[in-house]
Design a protein around this nucleic acid. Sequence first.
DNA 1: AGGGCATTGACCACGGTGGTCAATTGGCAT
DNA 2: ATGCCAATTGACCACCGTGGTCAATGCCCT
Lengths: 208, 208
Amino acid sequence: MIEKFLNLSMDKQERIINAALKVFSQQGYEQASTNEIVKEAGISKGLLFHYFNNKKELFFYLYGYAVEQLMNEFVAKLSRDEKDIFMKLRQAVLLKFDLIQRYPDVFDFLKTAYFENCAEIKPELEHYNKELMASGYSTIFHNIDHSLFKEGIDVTRAIQIIFWALEGFGLQQQEKWKANRYEDINMDEVMEEIDQYMHILKQAFYRQ
Amino acid sequence: MIEKFLNLSMDKQERIINAALKVFSQQGYEQASTNEIVKEAGISKGLLFHYFNNKKELFFYLYGYAVEQLMNEFVAKLSRDEKDIFMKLRQAVLLKFDLIQRYPDVFDFLKTAYFENCAEIKPELEHYNKELMASGYSTIFHNIDHSLFKEGIDVTRAIQIIFWALEGFGLQQQEKWKANRYEDINMDEVMEEIDQYMHILKQAFYRQ
DNA sequence: AGGGCATTGACCACGGTGGTCAATTGGCAT
DNA sequence: ATGCCAATTGACCACCGTGGTCAATGCCCT
């Protein structure tokens, strides 16, 4: 079944994958129609169900693909031995923005999958999602040097605050970007803005 | 049409409103079925369409109701002359949690309405949502005393950070509460946790 | 008794769904 | 050329739930 799909030429695989990612991420599992997917991919309905037994199987194949595509790169590129939380988070954000720009549909798919509500897939999905988040967080927060912080500061909470600040900033940016296409974004400006926030927090929390 | 609805006894109005709020907030506009709403409200289909011309009209009536119920109270209770951003945000969060507990469905409705994607209502809705957020933010950030901050600090960004920290904390809590019923929550513990974060930020940003 | 509003729920046309399968195509070995 | 088999098509299916209607009924007041 699915071996047939894997024997396809790479670009045909990708055409189908991208079409499905797009439709699922725009409509959510239940609303996403296989009709729209095949139209978007430029193949016939029959062929899709020749490769995947049913909608659910297709969805979870995509989920696996997306996780592999994004998370593996994320975990791989985030340097394991960076001990400065600011540098680490800066790196993580940069990487995240890079991934969003390079694989917008993959990223969106994972995001909507995270909030998926459909009963048919929710339980299974929730389990995977938890693992995913946990591995992401551990990659970020592992091996952080607490001794760089001012004495008497609650380091765990301080780190949490730094993280929330970056998360908030990220969401604010995404709100701004809704209209624009990703290419038109001046990443230098964005990073400079981030660094301003980091600077404030560094002065607040780090030994001078 | 709708005058007939307004002439109903309060508790019947509320039964219908609550049913509709619940279904809309759980399923989103398009997925929400009028069948389910009337079943939940314990009335017949015909009656619903006797009060509201169509689904859309019902939805926007609910939206107005929800805004009135929540925002008016929020704006009214948030003291206009509090100049300390920490006190103001503490008040705002407390108020927000209180509203979530007292009107969970109303709150959820507004939240899902904010992320609504359905083309039939999105444009109109987006407009209202923007106004809503703007008025909320201005209520919070108006009349803040910048002179309480340490010299040389970028106050605007510092305030932003404080806000993001609280927002992040709030989201983290909501994640935790997903399982629990709102009544089982120990609000004192939550507030104490908040105060710990506030304390850290205060030390970081305020003149001592 | 009867006028008139509140209320019912069976009914409708419709659109779209996930999935199937007999028929066709296309490429390759003979 | 021929035969063969896998890749591919798209018309087709049964099904479901939808938003909305409307003739009929219930109920209350005069």
